[in-house]
């Protein structure tokens, strides 16, 4: 699974964490990206807009994970654990959307909703 056959090296405490100011810069960057996202969000959604929104989302995600969650500096093992989770989640759930629900195509509900009788009232 996430751990490969070889051992992780012992991480020293010597690696330099960023200074407070650097963290502030990272946060400012995140703020700017969020601003860009909001502006894009007001556009009529087409493939390009959606694509750039998703890209910005990934950038933000990665920035927080790498800087604030220290994945940049910490052991590779942590990164593998997290990535395994993310990739598995992305894999199985995108597979559901694609295969079963044809999420990226048209809607699959064939019966118009108003044709289905309302559920009987259940009292317990």
């Amino acid at each position: 699974m996430a751990i490969a056959a070889h051992e992780e090296t012992v991480h020293g405490s010597g690696h330099a964490h960023p200074s407070d100011l650097q963290y502030v810069y990272v946060a400012l960057f995140l703020g700017v990206v969020t601003g860009a996202e909001i502006v894009l969000g007001y556009r009529h959604p087409n493939a390009l807009i959606i694509g750039s929104l998703l890209t910005l989302m990934v950038i933000k995600f990665a920035t927080v994970a790498l800087w604030f969650m220290h994945l940049r500096f910490d052991s590779l093992l942590f990164r593998r654990f997290f990535l395994t989770g993310i990739l598995l989640a992305a894999g199985v759930y995108i597979a559901i959307m694609m295969t079963a629900f044809q999420f990226f195509g048209n809607d699959t509900t064939s019966v118009p909703l108003n044709k289905i009788p309302p559920p009987a009232r259940i009292t317990r």
Binding site: V92, I96, A100, F101, T108, T109, L113, I116, P117, P118, P119
Partner: peptide
């Protein structure tokens, strides 16, 4: 999972079998 409200019963099956 309420089909009358338009839910898809396959949703449960997928989650359960994943």
């Amino acid at each position: 999972f309420v089909v009358q409200k338009g839910a898809d019963p396959l949703m449960w099956q997928h989650l359960f079998w994943i």
